[in-house]
Structures are given as structure tokens and as C-alpha cells.
Amino acid sequence: MITTYDTPTEAMTAVTDGWYNQLAGSLNLSVRHFQLLQPPAVPVSDQGLWDCFDIVPPVTLKYNRWLFQQPRFFSQYAAVVNGLSFPESAFVKDIGADTYVAWQAYLNTLSPPPPANTLPTVWFQWAMLHAPSVANIGRSDLSTQLLINGAQAALQPYEGADAKPADFSPTFSDLKTILRASPGTGFSFDSTNDDPDVSNSWVPGDDPNYFGIWTGSSAAFYVSRKFALSKITVSVQFDHFASVTVTPGSWYNSSLLHQAWASQAAPPWIDSADWQTYFGANGSLTHAVGSLLAVDGITLTLTSDADFSAAEQAIIKGLAAMGNWPVYCPISSAVLSNSISTGPGSLSIRFKSAPGNPVILGFNVFDIRSYLGAG
């Protein structure tokens, strides 16, 4: 029967890893960062696009959006920012009570009072004359206070009952413009001479395949294994493709997130245990999307010499709208089409996406250290 399980599922995993390597090599993508998106995203608006990459990506070469329920990058960032504080008492402790009294007396002589964003500089100039031994630590403390206060203020419009949506760059319109100006490419895949070795990728070892031959099917289905063990060829044409940097909006402060990551102490953390919650080995903010792989105008033709039975052929044809390996793109609108023809020892699938409709095939993922520019 079609639903008979046949484990292990190495065959489906191996052929998909081969496709991963072929796609990365053909588009000059680094396997140290690239992640397949399964199924791909086909956004039609800014919000749809932003929802696609406003996630903390899982540590896997194949991000199955049906399986992984990932936290939002915005929500994790906001939680970190709201978990930081640098109280005045910590500043007093670092510079000494007597110095603090003298500093406050000096500030009271200034008219008008210096703007908050100038306090670290004003302090340093004063302290170099009156308290040089704590000039640097005092400036660092005031800078941290300023950074936290500014980041929390920038977040306020995006929180609460009337919150603005967390925006990013690119917008949907910008993405379409970028793609129109980007080159096209064509390449082919042949499972008889592919390279399934992903040991040098950013997720080395056995990175399992979560779908079988069609979207939602198990890689352990007998029909999936039969497909994976056949001779598979894929001819691909992209009218346009581009790796596009993903940049959070004005709500985001990379300097503060870097400081939160770099220090486990309280301050700047209100509770120092929270560092592990977000940045520890099992934390909820260990990776981020640095850029996306977008394509426009896909024409993909797949052939397999698997000898599917009449019943298996009927199942495959009946589920064509679910989307098939290797892109797994469900046919949800006239933008996408998927046609299948079968015969003895022959399976052919032709997938097309209409020009002018970006399809997000994957991400370039960075661990939080690299994302923050710390190496």
C-alpha cells in the first residue's frame, strides 16, 4: 500500500542533500549559511514577506515551516531589550558616592542642562579633571543607560494594543524591483552523480528530510523511498534570482543587542539568568536571518525513472496541488502551476511560477555572534 512505512529514510535525505548542494553551488551560496525553506514562501504584501523572515531560524539545513514553530525575531529582541536596565545606583557604585555628589552639583550649574545624548561626553570631560580614575567606567555606564533608554523608547510604538507591525527591509515592492534588475540562471541536477555530503555545511552530519515526494508526505513512505532511489533529473531556469539582505526597521538597535549578548552580568541584565534564556546553548535567540534567496519566473522540470504502480501514480497526481520535491510549493493561486505525467518507469513533473511574483527559496542564517558582527 502507498502508506506502508519503510525506514530508515536515508534515501530521501540523501537526494535532498544532493539538491541542497547543487542549488548552493549553482547560485554561489555558502553552505556555511544557506538554509532551504520548505515549502517556499510566495508573499503578496509587505506583511507576508516580513512574516516569512521575522523568525529565529531552526538549526537545520531544511527549515520545514509545517514542522518547526519558531519564535519571532522581533518578539525575542523586544524581550531582551525590556529585560535590560542600568539603574542610577549602579552608576553611583562604580564612580563612588562622593564623586556622584560632586557630579550632580556640577550638572546643576549648567544652564540649560545638557541633552541626555551628550551626558557621556560631558561626564568624561568633567571627570578627567575631577575624578580621572573613574572617568572611563562612568562614561561606559552613562553610555549604557543612554543605549537602553533609547532602544526601549524606539520599541514603544511597536508594543501594546495599537502596536505598529514590526517592519523590515526589503519591502515587497523593493524586493520585486531588486529581482527585476537581477540576472537569471539555469542549471541541472542528476541524482546519479550528485553530492549528498553536507558534513562541511553549517549543520554537519545527518540533517533529516522532513517531506517525502509531495508536501506533507513522510520521507518514510515507501513511495518516497522508491522515488528517492530512482534516477532523478531536474532542469531549472530562474528568470531572476538574488540574495537580498534582511534589515530590521527603526525598532531595532544592533549595538544594544550586541551589548546584551556580550555581557551576562546584572546590569545590564535585570536578571542575569536571562542571558542563558536567550543566548545559551538552548536559548531562543541563537540564530538570525541575514539575507534571503528570492527568485522570480521559475521553470522546473523533473523526471524520475521510478516504476510507480497505477495506484501510486494516482496518489501522486491527486496530490499535485500540494507541491512536490524539490521545491514543495503548494499550488494556492494562479501564480503557480504544477503538472504531472506518468507512465511505466516514467514520472515527469513541471512546475512554473508566473513572472513578477517573488518566491523565497531559502535564507542565509547566521549564529547570533556572527549576526552581531562579533566574529
Rank of each mutant, 00 (worst) to 15 (best):
A116C: 00
T118F: 09
R139M: 13
F168Y: 15
G150H: 05
T177K: 14
I137A: 09
I148A: 09
A131V: 03
K164T: 01
A181F: 08
M128Q: 12
T192S: 11
A154E: 10
T192Q: 10
L179G: 13
Q156F: 05
V122P: 00
Q104R: 14
L107Y: 00
A131F: 02
P183S: 14
V101P: 00
I137T: 14
F124E: 12
T118M: 13
S133T: 12
T192F: 05
F189Q: 10
G184C: 08
S169C: 12
N117A: 14
P114F: 07
G138F: 06
A161Q: 08
S133C: 04
S182Q: 06
S111F: 02
G184V: 03
A163W: 02
L142R: 04
Y106V: 02
G184L: 07
P170M: 08
A116Y: 08
Q156R: 14
L110M: 14
D162G: 12
D174A: 15
P170V: 02
V101R: 01
N136G: 14
F168Q: 02
A153W: 00
A153P: 03
R139Y: 03
Q104Y: 06
L147A: 10
I178D: 10
N108K: 13
L175H: 07
A151E: 02
R180E: 10
D162I: 08
A151V: 03
S169D: 11
P115V: 06
L147P: 09
